[in-house]
Amino acid sequence: MTLLVVDRLTKHFGGVAAARDVSFTLAAGEMLAIIGPNGAGKSTTFNMVGGQLKPDSGTVTLAGAPIAGLPARAIWRSGVGRTFQVAQTFVSMTVAENVQMALVSRFGRSRSLLADARALYRDEALVLLGEVGMRPGADRPVSELAYGDVKRVELAVALASSPKLLLMDEPTAGMAPRERSGLMALTARVARQQGIGVLYTEHDMDAVFGHADRVLVLVRGEVIAAGAPEEIRANALVKQVYLGEAGARAALEARRKAVA
């Protein structure tokens, strides 16, 4: 089932087109990686989907509902969770309390001045922590955790909103190779079990080709290739891109001629 439809998203900063007519789809339970060299438009595209940037034109539809241009909080409420390149957690709180705070926000209990937040949704938080392998450490302060475990807690926090779509910005940044593989395998398993679409940007090619169902390649704001990992590995235009700036220019020109 198609969950996310991105159609001709475009964003300019001054005279520079950071994203130009970017289009793709994402199915429920699918992992889609966005890759490309620095300045390719990955973050711009990602942030337009997540609501941090408003597109100049184009549409984003989630489960049939248009979300392009909505505030980030409204997009979160519509079923979009997110993790960040640098993990966003409350380091002074315990692992469980971090997830409980996300659940409090989801269910609107943050407006109550009488409730003790530590007593709210603990059982639900423990279930989520069990899904990411962090239940045994539920009562440890986040400040004591290894960074790979912090990333798992952040994933549990994102899952607390019961998202249809999960956006992951450089999910393996700062992690050791073994931790990277473990986090991405965990994410893929949870996504397929719960039917969550996952859109992620990533520089680590093992995290891309080892775990993505499909890969989208951007160069200078334009899509030059999209397909299964093995197709992208063999794609001549993609190989040109990773040879450097001259290769990127040549690949983009070849793509434009092909679609003209």
Rank of each mutant, 00 (worst) to 15 (best):
R180G: 12
M175T: 12
V223A: 15
L216Y: 01
D204N: 15
P163M: 05
E230V: 14
L145I: 07
E231R: 15
A185Q: 08
S143K: 13
A236G: 12
H203P: 03
P229E: 02
Y147V: 08
H203R: 15
E154P: 05
A138V: 12
R192V: 06
R249K: 07
E231G: 03
V150K: 13
V215H: 02
Y242G: 01
P163R: 05
A156G: 00
D169Y: 14
A207F: 13
Y200L: 15
E202S: 10
G210M: 12
I196V: 14
T201M: 11
V219N: 05
A228V: 08
H211A: 05
R152T: 04
R140D: 04
A188I: 06
R178M: 11
G195K: 10
A160I: 04
H203D: 06
P177D: 08
V217N: 01
H203T: 15
E230S: 11
A248P: 03
E170Y: 05
G210F: 10
S162F: 05
A188S: 13
G174N: 09
L183M: 14
V215F: 03
S143E: 07
A156L: 09
L216D: 02
E202V: 14
R140E: 05
A212M: 09
A234Y: 03
V150W: 11
M168D: 03
V198G: 06
N235K: 08
A236F: 05
D139M: 13
A173P: 00
A146D: 00
P177K: 14
I232D: 00
V142W: 04
D139T: 10
V190C: 07
L145K: 04
K164G: 01
L145Q: 01
L167Q: 03
Q194W: 05
Q240P: 00
P141M: 10
A248I: 13
G221W: 07
S181E: 12
D213R: 12
R180L: 13
P229N: 07
T172E: 03
A188V: 08
V241Y: 00
P177F: 13
K164S: 01
Q194D: 10
A138M: 14
P177R: 14
P171W: 01
D149C: 12
A173L: 03
F209V: 15
S162N: 03
T187N: 06
T201S: 08
S143H: 04
P163G: 02
A185W: 03
M175V: 13
S161A: 12
M184L: 15
L159F: 02
M184G: 03
D149I: 11
G182A: 14
V208H: 13
Q193A: 14
L237D: 06
S161H: 04
M205K: 14
A160K: 04
I224N: 01
P229G: 08
V208E: 11
T201L: 13
L252R: 10
D169A: 07
S162W: 01
P141E: 07
E179L: 15
L165H: 02
V241Q: 00
P171K: 04
L218I: 13
V153L: 11
Y242Q: 00
R140Q: 10
Q240S: 02
K239E: 00
L199N: 09
